[in-house]
Simulated assay, not measured.
Amino acid sequence: MDFVINKIIDIDKDAENYRKNITELIEKKRMELEDSIKAMNKDCDEELKRIKTRILSSSISDAENKARDIKIEKEKRLSVIKEIYENNKVKITEEIFNEIIHSL
């Protein structure tokens, strides 16, 4: 009878140790998962920053290119206006001079 009782006590102790080991293992795995989640969140945040920087850089580059294109177009228009003026300067001056003379 003592043998059976001692065996039951041993089985109970083994079960308690097994439960304790399982609880510790679960806690260890939970901590590992939390660490993994934190690392993933950090990676996501860093990737988001890289994406934002790339988009911002791309937007700035696009704006600079557009500004350059506008400047080139305006310079071309100004050049055409200057050329027209230079080609017609004498004629314009004569017309203004004639208008002044004839208005007197």
Rank of each mutant, 00 (worst) to 15 (best):
I11W: 02
K76T: 01
K29Q: 12
R19K: 06
E16D: 06
K89V: 02
D12V: 11
I22G: 03
L56D: 05
I8T: 07
D2Q: 14
K7L: 07
K89G: 01
I100L: 15
N41P: 02
I51R: 00
L48D: 13
R68V: 07
N98G: 02
S61P: 03
L56H: 11
K20Y: 06
D35H: 12
L56K: 12
E32Y: 01
H102E: 15
K29S: 09
M31A: 08
R77V: 14
S79M: 12
E73D: 08
I55E: 10
S103F: 11
K42R: 10
D43S: 05
M40Y: 06
E64A: 05
N21W: 14
D35Q: 12
E73P: 03
E75G: 01
I55Y: 10
M40A: 00
E95F: 08
H102M: 07
V4S: 13
N88H: 15
K49L: 02
D2Y: 04
I51D: 00
L104W: 09
I96Y: 08
D43N: 11
K71G: 04
N98K: 09
N41A: 11
E32R: 03
D45L: 10
N21D: 13
K89T: 04
S103N: 12
K49D: 00
K52T: 02
E83G: 07
E32H: 06
K89L: 03
R68K: 10
